[in-house]
Design a binder for these strands. Structure first.
Length: 271
DNA sequence: CAAAGGTCCTGCTCGC
DNA sequence: TGCGAGCAGGACCTTT
């Protein structure tokens, strides 16, 4: 479910509703996510004021007085701010209870997500320290991609999905961006020209921006923090469109598996 | 039974 | 022979 636009949509949804609020309690129903929820999380959070809600890649950073909650939504996670008296459902693993009769509730059926805590600089945390640039920042550009990709022989789709290269480009938007840039997803990253990378960097930025603007992509059950769906799925040009006509040339959209992930592209438009 | 939006970790191969 | 970099595959889990 969540790629960068979905995480950003979530951040924007929850931030105004939890910022400056005090955490009264933390209810953990299922500790075992990708990693166990830290045993001391409740003690670390109780009584703390939420100072800020930011994002690095797909990690959400909830800054408290003395430390930061690091959250990742994994493959199926979602966050909502709801009334505490709404009974939790099967996959509602943790409630961060606020002093407003509301709580921040994490639902994650597949439990690939994470809830961690750090007292240090979260950007120096093991999981965040080696992340590549943010795709919407200026340091993510043709020169960066070109230099970073020299002597890399893997498929360009896998290259741009590598969080050490750039954060936030997941399986859907990788296919969409490569289509927009006219680059074949299996082409070796190291054989792509600087001009093509200029086009790809622009495509990634514009696809992600457009997706954020429309509230993310809804596939299956993604809803933003207020329960409304994202509408970007209507704008997807190739993802999930195997067998349909290409919107540029009319030839049939191809599906194949790259690095164990579904990939969609047009063999006529993408070389 | 296969596949679904993520990504860390392990272990192998290759080249210096 | 040793070491680091790059890369493929496995692992985690539930639902449709």
């Amino acid at each position: 479910m969540p790629e960068l636009p979905e995480v950003e949509t979530t951040r924007r949804g929850i931030s105004p509703r939890i910022k400056h609020k005090t955490i009264e309690n933390v209810t953990i129903r299922h500790r075992q996510l990708r990693w166990p929820i830290p045993a001391n999380l409740k003690a670390k959070c109780k009584g703390q004021i939420i100072k800020d809600v930011s994002r690095r890649g797909k990690y959400l950073l909830i800054k408290l007085d003395t430390g930061t909650i690091i959250m990742h939504l994994g493959m199926s996670g979602s966050l909502r701010v709801i009334d505490c008296n709404i009974p939790p459902e099967k996959h509602d693993h943790i409630d961060i209870v606020l002093n407003t009769d509301k709580c921040l509730r994490l639902r994650d059926p597949r439990r690939f997500g994470a809830v961690l805590f750090t007292t240090g600089d979260p950007l120096e945390h093991k999981l965040l320290k080696h992340l590549g640039p943010e795709p919407l920042e200026k340091d993510f550009n043709a020169t960066y991609l070109f230099n970073k990709s020299r002597k890399r022989n893997l498929a360009v789709k896998l290259f741009i999905m590598d969080s050490k290269v750039v954060v936030g480009v997941g399986n859907i938007y990788a296919s969409e961006s490569l289509f927009k840039a006219g680059i074949h997803p299996k082409k070796a990253a190291g054989k792509i020209t600087k001009e093509q990378y200029a086009s790809l960097a622009r495509a990634i930025k514009s696809v992600l921006k457009a997706a954020i603007k429309s509230g993310g992509t809804t596939l299956r059950d993604f809803t933003s923090s207020d329960g409304s769906p994202g509408y970007f799925s209507q704008s997807l040009k190739v993802y999930g469109r195997k067998g349909e006509p290409c919107s540029k040339c009319g030839k049939t959209i191809t599906h194949s598996v790259i690095g164990q992930r579904a990939t969609y592209y047009c063999t006529h438009c993408q070389k």
